[in-house]
């Protein structure tokens, strides 16, 4: 009986160490999705080597975001709009991740990101997709019309 305990006592740390090693072995690596999921970028060459971008693109974006936003010091090489313009196809759709460069890889690696809650998910030259049919001009006219009725566009102020 004691021999069993001793054996368990010896093997437990080894087992834990093994588990920790197993758990950490996946860290720091980014698994690229199958080539069929990776849309071809439109530019000739990325702003940084592929392995750097794969591992550190979020650090580059995060690091330079405050400089750009708070001080207007923008680096065109590391701009978010630049990434989307080059990598995302004009016909991509965020709801179908396989068509969208960023979403395909994030979906595959199960990493959630919030970028596209505010930033547009499509390049500047994207064509209007049918599922987003609200025309901007029409919408602005509606906006202006709505505000002239009851709510505070065209505020009337009388100076006594």
């Amino acid at each position: 009986m004691p021999s069993v305990l001793t054996r368990a006592g010896l093997s437990l740390p080894a087992l834990l160490a093994g588990l920790v090693f197993f758990a950490l072995s996946g860290c720091g690596k980014v698994e690229p999705p199958p080539a069929s999921l990776l849309a071809e970028a439109r530019g000739d060459q990325c702003v940084e080597p592929t392995d750097v971008m794969r591992r550190d693109h979020m650090k580059i974006l995060m690091h330079e975001r405050d400089e750009a936003k708070r001080y207007g010091r923008r680096n065109p090489d590391h701009s978010f709009v630049g990434c989307v313009d080059c990598h995302v196809s004009p016909t991509a759709n965020r709801e179908d991740p396989s068509t969208h460069f960023c979403m395909a890889c994030h979906e595959f690696n199960a990493v959630r990101m919030d970028c596209f809650q505010c930033h547009t998910d499509r390049p500047s030259d994207a064509v209007a997709s049918p599922h987003r049919s609200v025309d901007l001009h029409e919408s602005i006219e509606r906006h202006l019309a709505g505000h002239t009725d009851a709510t505070p566009n065209a505020v009337e102020i009388s100076i006594p």
């Binding site: 709505g146 009388s158 100076i159």
Partner: peptide
Amino acid sequence: RSLGRPETDAQWIRKVNLTDR
């Protein structure tokens, strides 16, 4: 854009009419 709800639609700029009574 307007979302069809003028009470909460964003306004970055608005016209104000002033009247000196």
